[in-house]
Design a protein around this nucleic acid. Structure first.
Lengths: 341, 341
DNA sequence: CTGAAAGCGCTTACAG
DNA sequence: CTGAAAGCGCTTACAG
């Protein structure tokens, strides 16, 4: 079936609406911006005119008049491949874009190199092209971004690396507590040789999850030396699981710091004929689509990725409006019990 | 180390530059826009003033004056998870953003649902918010987007689904020929039982690659009934490989329609102790980072994903300037020989 | 509660 | 080759 598209024609202006409604442009502008200073019946007349003409405010004109860009940068200071490779980010970006849908802001994509931002990126972010920025990343050791909010409001996805050095707005979960919860679940099920597949040490979330795993094991009086390192990718989960098995064939459970890595780990176990969860139980982290994509649906620590993205955008919007808002938003995690543990 | 950031202050305007250079605003504007109508020494004076003041043109003002938005939508009409899950897209987006860096255009992210675009998306794309759009997708059966270019210029990443029905601008590779090349490579190495792991039948690239595999086998007088279907994800590659092995244990090669699926396939073979490439040779498609991430570096059909993204943006830029450009850009593929075949 | 008017920072015919 | 002036489509004090 073909779709009818309106032919291109000049968009109606405020002026046109004013004429149609028999009022001044000022009044139309007030109605458009939801001012309470307009008489109800006038609001109605104008609203009808707007609908009749299918009026959409011109963003550039508005932006110029208010000297705001009405744009928000989505900054990805990450190896693009890694960023795109993790469904967790997909959900976060989705949440952000949903929150912005009802605003007049537009989301601008800004790929930055992981090490240090390019001249272009710096000029863009500092050159008055956006009103604010959202920096999404599992990690961040980059001082440019943490310092950026001296110029424009910035909110981070995930606590910035070395949080003690900065004081940025961010939304995150309590990774330490979440990991401890996942590990305790395993302990409660009677597991006694609980390994972990950790994330990369330059990401705060990875560090915190490792800590949570350790804490839970210490508290239970269990050993916590069975650690293999991945980088949050599926492939690295495969490698880490093999490493663990080689090191200690008697492992009976693994707390894996991301679902993607957990999926990789399970594929190794499955192909080796090791039954999950009977012989080795697996608990993941994220509850991203990766959790239910594999052969064995993952028992995992859920983090509300979509809501987190949504929250990030909401906070930025509040900052842009000058409204008060919390500096740290810690969202809840919870266990999702499926079949891997 | 801390980074010095300039304090926020009013940006210099054209006016300020004009005053500093002792010319009119018109002249400064001409210099900024690279007009050839200005006396060389004046150009120089003005240029110096621009640099001294660190002048950056105000996008909104320019946009309003030219009645152009100076924005381009990156439309992702795809399940977000799938889109983000494939490093191929990462490279494409990278290429796009690189091509746009030197332009005055800004890339706006527009997530659309795969089935049909939302009211919001439609209003956004049709409401004069962007000057053009790039629709990135492995597939597309969506008539809204193929019809969109009646309103604004659009270029597609990948030949739109059912190409015979449309006449859109797009950039792609010759998937059929590429797949045939990959398959022929296997044939030339003496393989005689060559299966394929195909992509989903609602994506044109998947269809074409399957055709290429078939063509090559027919031409060589070999059977071509060993087909298992995936959806371009790693997990689906795992499943498909198992299916093939169950169906025919004597397979000696597989042409896999994406590197991600190939990686999954190889993990199955490896865990089953089947040697790659000795017992079963694997050829992938993409040459994305996934090709070299796994245990066994992939022999694969390379497509220039970054250049493809770059080309998409370049073509759109040409359309926006009213310059002539090709409707179909078919970029070259080539074999990359590594270790899996 | 409403309108006239100035202004946001550019571009671009139009004269010269 | 260059400048004065109008105009792009909004917002927002300022009067009334």
């Amino acid at each position: 079936m073909d779709v009818e598209l309106p032919a291109r024609r000049v968009a109606p202006t405020l002026e046109a609406v004013a004429a149609a409604a028999g009022v001044s442009r000022s009044t139309v502008s007030r109605v458009v911006n939801g001012s309470s200073q307009v008489r109800p019946d006038v609001v109605e007349t104008v609203t009808r005119a707007i609908e009749d003409l299918n009026y959409v405010p011109n963003r550039a004109a508005r932006s110029l008049a208010k000297s705001q860009t009405m744009a928000i940068a989505l900054v990805v200071p990450e190896d693009t491949t890694r960023f795109f490779g993790d469904p967790f980010f997909a959900a976060v970006v989705h949440g952000i874009s949903r929150a912005l849908e009802d605003s007049d802001y537009v989301l601008t994509l800004q790929l930055a190199s992981p090490s240090e931002p390019s001249e272009k990126t710096i000029r863009y972010l500092l050159g008055g092209n956006v009103d604010g920025a959202i920096v999404v990343s599992h990690h961040s050791g980059d001082d440019f971004f943490t310092a950026l909010d001296a110029t424009i409001p910035v909110v981070f996805g995930g606590r910035p690396f070395q949080p003690e050095k900065h004081s940025n707005y961010f939304v995150d979960v309590d990774n330490t507590a979440g990991a401890a919860m996942g590990t305790n679940y395993l302990i409660d099920r009677g597991r006694t040789r609980i390994a972990t597949i950790a994330g990369p040490p330059n990401m705060q979330a990875a560090i915190d999850r490792t800590t949570g795993w350790q804490n839970a094991l210490s508290a239970a009086g269990q050993r916590h030396d069975l650690l293999a390192r991945g980088d949050f990718t599926m492939t690295s989960g495969v490698r880490a699981m093999r490493e663990l098995l080689d090191r200690d064939p008697h492992i009976d459970a693994v707390f894996v710091a991301s679902d993607l890595m957990a999926t990789g780990a399970i594929s190794v176990l499955r192909e080796r004929g090791i039954s999950v969860p009977n012989q080795i139980a697996i608990v993941g982290f994220d509850d991203s689509p990766a959790a239910t994509n594999g052969d064995i649906p993952l028992t995992t620590v859920h983090q509300p990725s979509g809501e987190m993205g949504n929250k990030m955008a909401t906070i930025l919007l509040q900052l842009l409006r000058g409204e008060p808002t919390e500096r740290e938003s810690i969202m809840p995690t919870r266990m999702v019990i499926r079949e891997s543990a």
